[in-house]
Amino acid sequence: MYEFDWSSIPGALPFLWEGMKVSLGITACAVLFGIAWGTLLAMARLSSIKPLAWLAAGYVNLFRAIPLVMVLLWFFLIVPQVLRGFFNLDPNTDVRLASALVGFALFEAAYYSEIIRAGIQSVPKGQISAASALGMSYAQAMRLVVLPQAFRNMVPLLLTQAIVLFQDTSLVYVSALADFFGAAYKVGDRDGRLVELLLFAGAVYFLICFAASQAVRHYQKKLNAHAAH
């Protein structure tokens, strides 16, 4: 019978916390950049300029059809070379974090753009007509009238996607970057207590994600109640 021994966890907490900061940092960056880039992609896809719409559709379909872990690995292998080439970096500079960030952001933008596209389409066409009739340019109508309503409708979906993203950050282990999962793995490996550490890491992921999705659900209920009245 396997004897559980949790004693290596308390001492490793500061190291694990450092890993958690990396995970949260990647999540935050990928969410922000993914929403910004995803919004542009969504608008390009809905644009009446056909080549622009095709390019955006190609981008979205490409990234949605490739496993995330592969994208991360590519960026781990390619981006460091590119960055070093562009910025003349010392070959020993650690660009793993940067490559992970770029990979996540570009990948997530494809998913966010689909959520945002649906959000934009959920705003009645008459709203654009009304904004145009008041003399607003297309850009003003989008920025002042359509996008604020679209984002309000989308917030629950965007947050849910952020929770998925937070779980996916564990995939950066392919680049040996010490995110929370990577840190837990390292500690477990060092102390020969892999089972305990991975169970602990799983419990932490579960608590954070479960709490976050409950919060999203609560928010969505409030939003629906608001919309109904």
């Binding site: 009645p124 009304a130 008041l134 607003m136 340019s137 009238v145 309503q149 309000r152």
Partner: peptide, 28 residues
């Protein structure tokens, strides 16, 4: 846009901006 800003239009379904107060609808 400049021409439209000088021509008022009222729609069948009102098309007020639901995320703005009445005052903001009137001033934006």
């Amino acid at each position: 846009p400049r021409l439209r800003s000088r021509v008022g239009m009222v729609f069948q379904h009102f098309e007020l901006f639901p995320h703005m107060s009445i005052t903001d609808n009137l001033t934006i």
